[in-house]
Design a protein around this nucleic acid. Sequence first.
DNA 1: CGCAAACGATCTGCTGTCAAACAATCGCCT
DNA 2: AGGCGATTGTTTGACAGCAGATCGTTTGCG
Lengths: 149, 149
Amino acid sequence: MPSKTVRPAYFAALATERPDIAMCRAAAYLARAGEAHATRQGLGVGQHLVLKMLDAVGPCSQQVLAEELRIDRSVMVNVCDDLEKSGFVHRRRNPDDRRSYAVTITGEGRERLAGAETAVPSFLDETFAPLTADERAQLTALVSKLMQL
Amino acid sequence: MPSKTVRPAYFAALATERPDIAMCRAAAYLARAGEAHATRQGLGVGQHLVLKMLDAVGPCSQQVLAEELRIDRSVMVNVCDDLEKSGFVHRRRNPDDRRSYAVTITGEGRERLAGAETAVPSFLDETFAPLTADERAQLTALVSKLMQL
DNA sequence: CGCAAACGATCTGCTGTCAAACAATCGCCT
DNA sequence: AGGCGATTGTTTGACAGCAGATCGTTTGCG
């Protein structure tokens, strides 16, 4: 989208000097786009990620979900509450350690996840449109290395 | 920092599949590090950026500062308030357009900025330690292109 | 067995950000 | 001239994220 004003464009200079600021601003843009896409789909970003992880690795405690998805515990509570209210997961006590829940995805949850997943590629194509597939892969690799994965 | 548990490490897989999520998590890490560094220096991140831009391009309205630095207008109000209270900037009405301010950096503000700037390189070296200088430049270039700068 | 420490889930309070509304001012248009 | 939409700075309300305390449960250790 072209900018209507031909201002000094100081931000470009700042971005080259402060990669941390540039990353934060880019992430804010991505977060807004993702949130908008998620609400269009009627499924929150966190909810989507939880369903996706449960489908991939099986039942988990909220603790593991929170740590692995980098979502705060106290936020995970509400995410799982909403998912349970919608019937996409069910929580029952882990018989081996009754302190923890075994959060499990339901059949209905799998269907919901499948529907949401089909919309992801086009969303990524839109939001990462300025980058080629190769550049996108480079970016992913660099970010992963930054976080020491 | 090594992780104490050798869990499935699902996040690494998620990061390769969802670059948007990976970017958001990395940016959150950077934001936390930057905020911690800023409070150590006693100058907020936004305040630092405003001083830096004023020093680079001269007096600006809060609107221009907000748009260029990607800070919300209603946040910029408090940032400029604090800077003015500290004596680092002064606001006077623009005589040509009395709706807007001409926010100007003071001599004291320049001194404060210079002190804060000297601490930036070491901060960047710490937070971007996993990346080489070349990779850091690649990352910056990719992020800039993503935001179409 | 009894008790202290640790852990998982939840709740509460605080902080920061953003959207929407509002007053003052400007530019435009007839 | 005058009216009306747009812009600038500000205030307010809502909401997400996070730190810390709480409650129930389990584990370890004498």
